[in-house]
Design a binder for these strands. Structure first.
Lengths: 116, 116
DNA sequence: CTGTATCCTTGGCGATACTG
DNA sequence: CAGTATCGCCAAGGATACAG
């Protein structure tokens, strides 16, 4: 069925602004972590789930689907005998990693200063 | 009135991870933009509203309050005759700007490549 | 000018169970 | 192993009007 994307009634922050342009890909509770854990090498579903504890498979699967739809990552089924699936970043996905790296940097600093 | 904050039943991405530690401050639809537009100099309520079109005063006010509570910015009332209010980043707020700058950088690049 | 008050919608998120 | 199905919550966000 036509997955026609409804005109999101959720008011978008100002598009056209580079900040928002990038943030839209980082939106969502688990999104940055997923990209982060994929930055070096492809990972499988359960590996990612283990990397990012606390998320339910349903939510996780949904997030991965959206990221795939957005062109951030690709999903590849490997026909082994328990089937495995590998997720990896696309070029677009890799473009985002510098931003996330900066966020991680800041996070480290905040932790050092015990502000978190 | 004791605004006791309930143990948020919502989204609990893995805390303790630096990424999430930083992201919690960037969460929310208009948050990064607010910090961004305050990075150089203090701004008044209506200035910020104009910088970031499309947000209603209620939502905007709520966001600013949360940022103040989180220690990202300070609110100073200037007793002029129409009263004006100035918002400025705290030290903590300024710590976040490198991360946002990186995000903006990536946003620029994405726009150049017309992926957005 | 700088916000609050009301009321409402929505989609993100969660838990658990189940399947190819 | 890698997900869906189902059910439901609720905080974030929005529109509009009003207030100090």
């Amino acid at each position: 069925m036509a997955v026609k994307r409804r005109k999101s009634k959720v008011k978008a922050p100002p598009v056209g602004c580079p900040l928002t342009a990038c943030m839209q890909f980082l939106k969502g509770a688990w999104t940055p972590n997923i990209i982060w854990y994929l930055r070096e090498e492809p990972r499988r579903f359960s590996e990612l789930m283990a990397d990012i504890p606390g998320v339910s498979p349903k939510v996780f699967s949904g997030r991965l689907k959206r990221l795939e739809r957005d062109g951030i990552l690709t999903r590849q089924v490997i026909p082994t005998s328990p089937p495995t699936v590998e997720y990896s970043l696309t070029d677009l996905g890799h473009e985002l990693t510098p931003a996330i790296e900066a966020i991680v940097q800041v996070g480290h600093k905040l932790k050092q200063q015990r502000v978190v």
